[in-house]
C-alpha cells in the first residue's frame, strides 16, 4: 500500500475512533506544507490526552498530601506527513505532581488556585519518527510554574498568555531500522545521540498564545508561538525548534481554526535543523 495512503488511513481511523469519545480530548490537524527540500507535502498532527478512568472506567491514580497531589494519565502526540515532512511521535504515561497553598471555600478545604502553584510533570514513554528507524525510551521530569490565573493581580496580563517549563530527559536510543531506507531533507536524523546508547538532555520550553487578538468580519485572529531548546549533556550539543503561526478561529468556541505556520527545527527525536511552512486546519473533538 502506498505510504501516503497508509498515513491518511491511520489518521482517519484514529480520528473516527476518538471522535466518538465523549470527553473530546482529541486535536486533529491537516495541512499543506513546503518541506526542507522545497517539496510540497501533506502534514498532519494528532494530539490525544485522556484520563485513565475515562479509558478504563476505573478511577485513575490520585495521591493526596497535605499541600500536594499526584495524578497520572496517558498522552499521545503525532506530527508527521508525506515526502520529507518533519515527523515525531510521542507516546507517554504522564503524571502531574502539584504543590500548592490551601484555602477555604464555603467551609471546605481546597487548593488555592488563585495563588502561585508549582506543577511538576513526570512521564515515561517513547519518542520516534514515522519511519520507526529508532525508538527513544525516555523518562522525563519537569517543572512548570502556574501563574496564569486571571485572579493573580501581580502577574502582568500579557504574561498570562505565556507558559514556560524545564524538563530533564534521560533514556536510551534503540536502533530498530530494518528498512535501510535513506532519509532525505526534513526526515534526516541530525541528532548527535548515538544509536544503542544512552540519552541525557535538558529541555527548556516557552510558548505564547494570544488567543483572539482582534476580529476580521467575525473571524478571531491570534498569534501562537513556541520555542524549545535542548542541551545534550553526553554530546555537548544544542538542538532547538521554533514554531510560529497566525491563527484564524473559525468558531466562537475556538475548537476549529486555520493556521498559517512556520517551523524551524523538527525537535526530538530527529533534531533536524531544516524548516518548513504551510497552512493547516485544526479541529478538536
Amino acid at each position: 500500500m502506498n505510504k501516503k495512503f497508509l498515513y491518511i488511513l491511520i489518521a482517519g481511523l484514529l480520528a473516527m475512533q476518538f471522535s466518538y469519545s465523549q470527553e473530546k480530548p482529541l486535536e486533529v490537524s491537516l495541512g499543506s506544507i513546503n518541506t526542507e527540500s522545497k517539496r510540497n507535502a501533506i502534514d498532519f498532527g494528532i494530539r490525544y490526552a485522556k484520563t485513565l478512568d475515562s479509558l478504563f472506567k476505573k478511577q485513575d491514580i490520585l495521591l493526596s498530601g497535605k499541600n500536594s497531589l499526584f495524578q497520572a494519565s496517558p498522552e499521545f502526540i503525532v506530527q508527521s506527513g508525506t515526502n520529507d515532512a518533519f515527523s515525531s511521535i510521542d507516546v507517554k504515561l504522564s503524571g502531574l505532581f502539584m504543590l500548592f497553598k490551601t484555602t477555604t471555600i464555603d467551609n471546605q478545604l481546597t487548593p488555592c488556585t488563585d495563588c502561585f502553584m508549582d506543577l511538576l510533570p513526570i512521564s515515561v514513554g517513547i519518542e520516534t519518527n514515522n519511519t520507526f528507524s529508532t525508538i527513544n525510551g525516555i523518562i522525563e521530569f519537569g517543572y512548570v510554574p502556574w501563574y496564569q490565573s486571571p485572579m493573580m493581580k501581580k502577574v502582568p496580563s500579557w504574561m498570562k498568555n505565556t507558559k514556560i517549563g524545564v524538563f530533564l530527559q534521560a533514556g536510551y536510543k534503540f536502533n530498530i531500522d530494518t528498512t535501510n531506507i535513506i532519509p532525505v531533507g526534513g526526515q534526516i536524523d541530525e541528532s548527535k545521540e548515538a544509536v544503542d546508547d544512552r540519552i541525557f538532555r535538558v529541555k527548556g520550553s516557552f510558548a505564547i498564545d494570544t488567543k483572539s487578538l482582534f476580529e476580521i468580519n467575525g473571524v478571531g485572529v491570534g498569534l501562537v508561538g513556541s520555542a524549545d531548546g535542548w542541551y545534550d549533556f553526553l554530546n555537548s550539543e544544542v538542538y532547538y525548534t521554533i514554531k510560529g503561526a497566525a491563527r484564524f478561529f473559525l468558531t466562537q468556541n475556538k475548537d476549529k481554526y486555520f493556521d498559517l505556520k512556520y517551523q524551524k527545527g523538527s525537535g526530538a527525536p530527529n533534531f533536524n535543523q531544516g524548516d518548513q511552512f504551510g497552512i493547516g486546519l485544526t479541529m478538536t473533538f
Partner: peptide, 26 residues
C-alpha cells in the same frame, strides 16, 4: 483547556485534580 499548559500541566487536568483532592480531604 488542554492546550494552556505543557503536557498534562493544563487547566482541564489541574481542575480535575484539585476537585478530586478536595473531595478526599473533606
Amino acid at each position: 483547556s488542554t492546550t494552556d499548559g505543557f503536557g498534562n500541566a493544563n487547566s482541564k487536568y489541574v481542575y480535575r485534580a484539585v476537585i478530586r483532592w478536595t473531595m478526599k480531604k473533606n
